[in-house]
Every structure is written in structure tokens, then in C-alpha cells.
Design a protein around this nucleic acid. Structure first.
Length: 217
DNA sequence: TGCCAGGCCGGGT
DNA sequence: ACCCGGCATGGC
């Protein structure tokens, strides 16, 4: 918790998620899988400007045409399938009504998301936290790297173990989970880079970088 | 120019 | 139960 305070003081509020509506956030969560956010924004802009940011339209749009729109985000064929899988789930089970979809417990919502092919733990948590506004802590590669570099986790700790570490030590507060994850990404981008750790300048400079870690960590 | 970016799935051991 | 290749664009 004091680390949270340290990061907030160092970086300031991050104002995540960088998307406006719940639907836009869901789309962004799928498109950003292993992908630079700048590329995702181009893809989302293409969808916006052609009026495709709509559950029913995304379900019914021709896959090849949709793939063309989201091309800048990379992996466009597989992401077309994943996006349409997700939209089809909401369309069939909730008539495309996101408020109804989100109106259930965190655990139930997360489980439903995970059952959609193409939605893994991070994408599910992105959607639960940032689109639905429910407290589910998000773990991503930045989180993993920052935590490992600071010896807060072991190299073989899995997603759920890391997620549990945060959730066990924090109150289930949406603005806190929101900001904390965004701040960890800021640390990762600025100081905990692979092959180029800038530990000495990092606000979390509480350790000596371990040269025995694999370079990508 | 090669490496990287807010993962996940499916097939092979 | 792991492990690994595949998926693809744009920026530095």
C-alpha cells in the first residue's frame, strides 16, 4: 500500500482506461492483446469513424471486412474472431445490453468472460474492472516484470497467484485497482524495461537488479 | 534493422 | 500438466 502511494506521488493519476464507453473498452481489451496501444487506437478509430462500435453491428459485420478495419492492431484475423466471439456472447445472452451483462457478481462475470474463446484472464479482468467497473485486479506482463524484479513474486507464480497477492492485501476498491494497475504499467514502461532496467532512477528503487534474471525480466 | 508491444489458443510431448 | 509456435502491424 505504501508502494501504491509512492507510485501515485511519482507518476500522478493515470486516468485509465484510455477509452470512453464500456463497449469501446471491451473492444480495446481484445485488440491490445500483446499489442502496442498506439496501434490499437488506430484500429478503434477505424471502427468509430465507420459507425461499427456497436454490439449488433460487430456481430453481424462480415469478418473479412472487420479484419480490414482492425488491421493496424495486428493479428487481425484472430482478433476478428475473438472480438466477434465476445460480441456474439453478449448479443445472444443479453440482447447486446451491457448493463444487464455487467449486472452480476465479479466472479460470475469473470467466469462468463473466460468461457469465451479468445478471452483469457487479463482480457477478462480488463473488462470486469475498466468496462464493468467492478473490483478485479488486472495482471499483465508489466505487473509480472515489476513484481518479479522487486522479488515480490517468484518466476513461476501464475496469473491467479499474482492477482491474489494484490487482492489479499488491498480492499476491493475500484478506483484503487484501476489506478494501481495503471501505475504498474507506468513503472514498467519507464523504468522496468527488458534489457534496459533503469532501477537507479525508479521510484521503487528498493532493490539491486538481479543480473541472474533472464534478460526479458 | 531487428526487436518490441497492456495475450491467448491449440497441438505436441 | 507444461511447453511452444503461431498470430501481424507500426514505431523506434
Amino acid at each position: 500500500m505504501d508502494h501504491y502511494r509512492t507510485l501515485l506521488d511519482a507518476f500522478g493519476p493515470q486516468h485509465w482506461w484510455p477509452g470512453e464507453t464500456p463497449l469501446e473498452i471491451m473492444v480495446g481489451a481484445v485488440l491490445t492483446q500483446n499489442t502496442n496501444w498506439a496501434n490499437v487506437e488506430r484500429a478503434i478509430d477505424n471502427l468509430k469513424h465507420t459507425g461499427l462500435l456497436d454490439v449488433e453491428k460487430l456481430v453481424k459485420f462480415h469478418p473479412a471486412e472487420l479484419a480490414e478495419r482492425i488491421k493496424p492492431a495486428g493479428y487481425f484475423n484472430i482478433k476478428t474472431k475473438r472480438l466477434q466471439n465476445l460480441m456474439r456472447f453478449v448479443w445472444r445472452n443479453y440482447d447486446g445490453d451491457l448493463d444487464r451483462f455487467f449486472n452480476q457478481s465479479v466472479a460470475a462475470l469473470r467466469d462468463q468472460l473466460l468461457a469465451v474463446n479468445g478471452i483469457g484472464p487479463e482480457t477478462a479482468d480488463d473488462i470486469v474492472l475498466y468496462a464493468a467497473g467492478k473490483p478485479s485486479f488486472v495482471v499483465d506482463t508489466y505487473t509480472f516484470r515489476v513484481m518479479l524484479r522487486h522479488h515480490f513474486i517468484a518466476q513461476d507464480d501464475d496469473y491467479d497467484a499474482i492477482k491474489a497477492m494484490f487482492e489479499d492485501h488491498l480492499t476491493a476498491d475500484v478506483p484503487l485497482f484501476n489506478e494501481y494497475h495503471a501505475l504498474l504499467v507506468a513503472v514498467g514502461k519507464n523504468f522496468c524495461k527488458p534489457r534496459n532496467p533503469l532501477c537507479a532512477q525508479c521510484p521503487l528503487n528498493v532493490y539491486e537488479h538481479d543480473p541472474n534474471l533472464p534478460e526479458e525480466f
